[in-house]
Design a protein around this nucleic acid. Structure first.
Lengths: 160, 160
DNA sequence: CTATAATGTCAACATGGTTGACCAAATATC
DNA sequence: GATATTTGGTCAACCATGTTGACATTATAG
């Protein structure tokens, strides 16, 4: 695999390739995806570990930060986890006063989640490392490559 | 977040953006990365689940397939896990006759791993769904966007 | 002969997830 | 107003995946 990365020079797919070369190119892409994603999660994981938190907490902080006053149910939907899986880490974030909870005025069953100032600060730190990492890479490869990357990612996640 | 995806039209970064817009663009990229990667692992996970296997098994099958006669130690290095973590799933794959083991001729301590025919078949099926997914997306977005995506991924994983 | 390396295995533990069951409070419906 | 449904919380049992530490085996190296 390291072999492939060094000997095949990151070829794009086109119709002139033999099936074998096409397969090799696609396998290389899979590996780049895997290692790229892994590299992308290293820094936040390190910061989280210092506070005894994990990736779940990061995801909660991220989505609550992006969606202030989000309901528990809506958050569950975004994270695609069960409420039981959310319960423990969310309660932990509430105890640590990184997330705060309010009862909705329109429906008193609904609990609305928001970040506290401290929570927003931690979230900014976590996401900041990833934003910086992306910014560095985007600066390296240029706006054209960046736009291509976005297009592929959007299409993959079904938004394109 | 869905809001952002639908209202901001996937802007590339450039120096004319305000800091706020720059941050929004980078956050959008982070989300695309997260959801894109998640979408990328859904299909293999489904196939694996049918056989009672997990992602670990896929990773083992993949790297052994790409590196026939790989030693246990080398495999550990690629997966970045402890030998204890590898032990159980690897033994399972051996028991299921998807991976086979040989003693190296040059050093009888070393055990060399390869896929059996059945293992190669399953690996091809698993990786095949991902290759097809990528191929579809690449065809949709064109060779230029694909090349950009590869550049970004390579740079992220530290190969560029 | 002894030290080191490659592998395998056992135990204890942490994390993050699942499903099922059940409860309370608030709202919706008949 | 009685009843059903929705939202949320919690307990328990379980599974998958990972960790570290300790120890044994075998083979190679010095």
């Amino acid at each position: 695999m390291v072999d492939q990365i060094s000997t095949i020079d990151n070829p794009p797919l086109d119709e002139t390739l033999t099936p074998d070369m096409r397969e090799a190119a696609l396998r290389l892409a899979i590996e780049q995806f895997y290692f790229g994603y892994r590299a992308f999660t290293v820094q936040p994981d390190r910061i989280l570990a210092e506070r005894g938190l994990g990736r779940v907490h990061h995801r909660i902080l991220y989505f609550v930060g992006r969606n202030p006053r989000i309901s528990v149910n809506a958050l569950l939907g975004m994270l695609s986890v069960s409420k039981q899986a959310l319960n423990a880490p969310l309660r932990q974030l509430l105890d640590m006063q990184l997330v705060m909870i309010d009862t909705a005025t329109h429906d008193k069953r609904v609990r609305e989640l928001s970040l506290t100032a401290a929570g927003a600060e931690l979230e900014a730190q976590l996401t900041g490392t990833q934003m910086q990492q992306l910014q560095t890479v985007f600066a390296q490869v240029g706006a054209n490559a960046e736009a291509g990357w976005r297009q592929v990612m959007r299409s993959l996640s079904g938004q394109g």
